[in-house]
Amino acid sequence: MLYRVIDSQELPALVEAFMEDYEVIAPVESGASYAFEKVTSFDEIKLDYPTTITSCKKYVLPPRETLFKFDALNNEVTDFTVKVTPRVIFGAHACDINALNSLDMVFEDSRYRDPYYEARRGATLIIGISCTPTESCFCHLMEADEARTGYDLFLQDIGGRYLVSIGSVTAANVLESACNPREATDEDRIAFRQATRKRQESFNEEIPDVQEIAMLMDAFHSDPFWDELGSRCLACTACSSVCPTCFCFDIADTLGPDGKTGRRERIWDACTSPQFAMVTGGHNFRDSNRNRVRHRMYHKLNGFLATHDRMLCTGCGRCVRACKAHISPIEVLKFFEEKGA
């Protein structure tokens, strides 16, 4: 990995350089919170944001997208094409970069490659930035607090300057043209270690570290705990709406006003939705909130790990804040901590 150092005042020039050839998406203020949106000026960007309401997932996996158009009367299908915009996501935290890496494993699987996802992902550069954890962040427990891959540049604030980790030639060329990157000195490396230590010490110590979480998900699969958790669930699907790694979707045919033409669309879906596991004939494979909540947690903390060797949960804490019933992986971690006491 190649490292360089730039001064903080060079960031506007870096963003402007990207804007010459790319649409720039960055964190901006959105009411009392923050969101990833298109920006036209560096002044709109808030790089010291805690966590956005939703992640940048929507720019590679839109909530709703057309797959093809059809004419039912003439039995014709037309491929739907959309211009993929070259894009830079500027200011992604490590947890969100790791979330994109997990989505890559799903949609860029060589057995089932998804051309829609690949087109958007291939046209997107990721510029990461360091952050300070909030009270609901637990990315360090999911091994997602550091981004080792999946970015083109990663900026670590080391006080008045940034240590830049370079992940692609394309981004390196933009950095070189817009800024005056220099080699890191011993002073820079010391500042980097201090910043890393400060971030590690900022995590909420009340969130327990349960090392054997995946095994415990199997061992306590039938515990009454899931009944209690399920009884609180409102089936509102807010958790999956804000989650950076939820990738389930539904396919729907939408007819036009004439009732003869329409389009087939891919739409985000959620395993906590009562209709998610319902099949033809009316049978529902997960017909209770208990089973749906347990399934969601199991997939995040066990199932994905078994197939991809990493947790699907990145510990970003969005679901913690979104759930009005206070259901989250943190509750599961606390339950297993009590079981092991």
Rank of each mutant, 00 (worst) to 15 (best):
C56G: 07
L61A: 13
K69S: 09
Y59S: 00
K58Y: 02
T51K: 09
T52L: 01
R64K: 14
E65Q: 06
I53Q: 08
L61G: 09
V60C: 07
L73M: 15
V77S: 00
Y59W: 13
D71K: 07
V77Y: 04
T66I: 13
F70G: 06
L47H: 04
L61V: 14
L61N: 10
K57M: 04
V60L: 12
S55D: 00
T51F: 08
Y59Q: 04
L47C: 13
P63R: 13
D48Q: 11
F70P: 03
N75V: 10
V82W: 03
V60F: 08
F70D: 02
Y49S: 07
T54R: 12
V77W: 05
P63A: 07
T81N: 15
I53L: 14
I53H: 10
C56Q: 04
D79R: 09
T66W: 07
L47V: 08
D71F: 11
P50L: 03
K58Q: 12
V60K: 00
D48E: 14
Y49A: 05
V77P: 02
R64H: 08
D71L: 03
P62T: 04
R64A: 10
F70S: 07
S55M: 02
K57F: 01
P63D: 14
I53T: 12
T81R: 12
K69V: 01
R64G: 00
K58D: 10
P63Y: 12
L47D: 13
F80E: 11
P62C: 03
V82P: 02
T52F: 06
R64L: 10
E65N: 09
Y59G: 00
V82Q: 15
C56T: 01
N75I: 13
L73D: 15
L73N: 14
F80M: 10
V60N: 03
N75Y: 13
N75R: 14
P62F: 00
K83V: 15
V60W: 05
P63H: 11
T81F: 11
T66Y: 06
K69H: 13
E76Q: 15
F80P: 10
E65P: 00
V82I: 10
L67A: 01
N75L: 15
F70C: 00
T52K: 04
N74I: 05
L67V: 13
K57E: 01
F80I: 03
V82K: 12
T54C: 10
A72T: 03
F70H: 05
D79K: 09
V82M: 10
T52Y: 05
P50Q: 06
V77A: 09
C56W: 00
V82H: 12
C56A: 13
T66S: 08
F70M: 05
K58N: 04
L47W: 07
V82C: 09
